[in-house]
């Protein structure tokens, strides 16, 4: 009887703990850890942030830091992010990692944290004025676009004097990641591969099925299409399915972006010539290292901090090692 009750209490305790974990706001200043570092990010639902979270969790555990991870479940917007930031600041974390969803709208919250003596690192995107921030760490979208151009040119066997048609599948005309990647891609083509023409672009609104429709029609419209640059994970998924359905795998070179597990599988099957992957986990690790060094007042560590850090993209191909493929694949369920 006593054991039964004991068990019941245990279950209850676990349930309470779990509900705190679900609520996501764990109480800071736990005895074991010396610091609490809070991440306030864009949208929980994005695999990109899931991968970043994994990196953050690993590094926090390694450094003995309590991690607070907060963001809207699915909406990438300052309207939802600002109240979340306020709530997190009320917990008085020792350090803050901010992924601002808008450079202007998040400036005030950003500065408020610094004024309260909380060191801040900007990750992935940044507020307008980062002079008082410890650092701004980001992946390089333009670099990713340029790498995609190089990889695509090589895959189609680019030769001077010949002409090639390629298309670009985007998600939106304004998302900064899309714009950065497209600009990097187009600039590299202009510079190094003048024989390549981007004959068409279309937007998928984050839906693989819309991307699939776009690519399916392009495949009919341009029988001599040489390659496709799918600018993010959903476009990559839609384009990959279209090539498979039309039996054009390998004939038309497909460069995708974002290492979703489903897409990484398709590298092995030859559907993707290459996938450009960012390394969100590395961004998170570095951000935590910088904050811990700052809080420790560790001179050697602080000396290594750079105010602007660009983490390069990696190109994953069938030739990449299994370990690399595994390392860069975004965690997903």
């Amino acid at each position: 009887m006593a054991t039964l009750r004991h068990k019941a209490v245990k279950v209850l305790a676990v349930a309470v703990a779990a509900s705190f974990a679900v609520a996501g706001i764990s109480t800071p200043a736990q005895a074991a850890n010396k610091y609490t570092i809070a991440f306030v990010m864009g949208a929980e639902s994005d695999p990109f942030f899931q991968a970043m979270k994994l990196g953050a969790e690993q590094e926090a555990a390694a450094k003995g830091v309590t991690l607070v991870w907060q963001g809207d479940p699915s909406v990438y917007s300052p309207a939802t992010q600002n109240p979340i930031l306020d709530q997190v600041l009320a917990l008085k974390p020792n350090g803050l990692v901010l992924i601002p969803t808008d450079p202007t709208a998040l400036q005030a919250g950003h500065d408020k944290a610094i004024a309260a003596g909380i060191p801040v690192v900007n990750v992935d995107t940044h507020v307008n004025d980062t002079t008082k921030a410890v650092s701004f760490i980001t992946g390089d979208n333009a670099d990713g676009g340029a790498k995609a151009a190089d990889t695509l040119a090589k895959a189609i066997g680019y030769k001077k004097g010949k002409t090639y048609k390629v298309v670009v599948g985007l998600t939106s005309a304004t998302a900064t990641t899309n714009v950065g990647r497209l600009n990097g891609f187009a600039a590299q083509i202009k510079k190094s591969y003048p024989g390549i023409t981007i004959v068409d672009k279309a937007y998928s609104q984050s839906q693989p099925s819309v991307a699939n429709t776009n690519v399916s029609n392009w495949l009919t419209k341009y029988p001599d299409l040489a390659g496709i640059f799918a600018i993010d994970g959903t476009n990559a998924a839609g384009a990959a399915a279209a090539l498979q359905a039309k039996g054009l795998v390998g004939k038309i070179k497909l460069i995708g972006y974002d290492a979703y597990p489903a897409n990484v599988d398709l590298i092995k099957k030859g559907v993707f010539t290459a996938l450009i992957a960012q390394d969100p986990a590395a961004e998170a690790r570095l951000a935590i290292d910088y904050l811990v060094a700052t809080l420790d007042k560790d001179k050697a560590g602080i000396a290594k901090i750079k105010h602007d850090v660009v983490i390069p993209n990696v190109v994953l191909t069938a030739k990449s090692s299994a370990a690399d493929l595994k390392k860069y694949t975004y965690v997903a369920k």
């Binding site: 998924a237 498979q244 359905a245």
Partner: peptide, 25 residues
């Protein structure tokens, strides 16, 4: 739509039978 995102973490879920796409041809 919320649950679909929570379940998947936002990305597409593959790893099913290869024959799927062929059925849609």
């Amino acid at each position: 739509s919320g649950l679909a995102i929570v379940f998947t973490g936002g990305g597409p879920i593959g790893g099913g039978p290869d024959a799927a796409i062929q059925l849609s041809v």
